[in-house]
Design a protein around this nucleic acid. Structure first.
Lengths: 189, 189
DNA sequence: ACAAACCTGTGATGTTTGTTAAAAAAAAGT
DNA sequence: ACTTTTTTTTAACAAACATCACAGGTTTGT
């Protein structure tokens, strides 16, 4: 059960066996059925979640009732609302399972305790947040481009994701309507 | 010279006096005239920069020759290209002084050494990157909204920045043309 | 296997925003 | 102070994209 997450950590830092055990002991295993929510608007987010099986989408619903996908989460991804965790305020996001899904979750408070005991763990989180930050910067720049270019970029970067999520969710992630995405696809062929 | 940066660190973590000194000793002071570049496309970014006076803009030039502003940096902000730093590859960004500016810079290699010696420093960077990440998520969601809403949001969040940068740079940050922004402003009055 | 729910494709139409160009205004440098 | 350079404003036009509506497919749960 812990192979995926330990391998992911090992890609960035080295933990002693005892540290690995301590970390794994803090993890909780959670299973979700398709359509089930890991987090709902209004909840306070207390956990960071690492996906070991299946897939999720994180989205917010805006004033006009539109769903805007912030990110997807498949195997090997962390997903949660850091803003809600940092500020202890209700989240604006929903995180919904797109398929039957399994995650390992760790409580924020527990994680912060572990950071004090295991500096390499804090380093790991610094590094993955940095990677996520860089990826988001890239996304911001891509939002300036035409919908065709955004979709092309999405295909090259997240080909495997495109296979697993519905077109409407891809459109929402790209910030275009499903109609526009549908037309884009037919135009190209 | 170090008050600003030490105060900023103290807002998030506590450093022992010896740690503070060690950190400050690793900093270099750098002055820039208006229009001077701190980083140019093609350079490899080796430093993280903390602004203590003045202001900068970080932008990339896309295939069509358009300048897209990634972020501004005024007093109390860190600015650099983490992607270039992480991968040791040439940056796609330019960082240009908008006014006469002073920064404190720290070499990436030196910083990583310090992380090993001063865990609280690594914590500080984890936290500020997390904050930057959360702010970027918010920006991604705002990119879905109309240009009027984006500008309104910008005004409420960055009123002080709006005072100090030209309208065309605000427009570029918002992902709209300067003409559109100009029209927005006149419409409102 | 079948009904219900959900997702995708397509056309007609409207709105927003970009484009081009030129004039007015403001700011910077000497 | 004054010239040069840069920035902002405005207008007419074009393009990209959203919206609305509905038909045809596909998936899902029972």
């Amino acid at each position: 059960m812990y192979e995926l997450i330990l391998a992911h950590i090992a890609r960035h830092v080295t933990l002693a066996p005892a540290e690995r055990e301590k970390f794994c002991a803090a993890l909780q295993h959670k299973k979700l059925r398709r359509r089930q929510y890991l987090l709902q608007e209004g909840d306070i987010c207390r956990y960071d979640h690492f996906v070991i099986k299946g897939g999720l989408r994180q989205y917010e619903v805006d004033d006009e009732g539109r769903e805007n996908v912030m990110q997807f989460g498949f195997e090997d991804w962390w997903i949660s609302d850091w803003y809600s965790m940092l500020t202890n305020t209700p989240t604006a996001y929903n995180i919904e399972a797109l398929e039957d899904t399994e995650v390992l979750q760790i409580e924020r408070v527990k994680l912060e305790q572990l950071f004090l005991e295991i500096p390499a763990l804090e380093r790991y989180f610094r590094i993955i947040i940095l990677h996520a930050f860089v990826a988001l910067q890239r996304r911001v720049l891509f939002m300036q481009k035409s919908s065709a270019e955004r979709y092309a970029e999405f295909l090259t970067r997240y080909a495997h994701v495109e296979q697993r999520v519905s077109q409407q969710h891809v459109a929402s992630y790209l910030g275009i309507t499903r109609e526009t995405l549908s037309r884009l696809k037919s135009r190209k062929l």
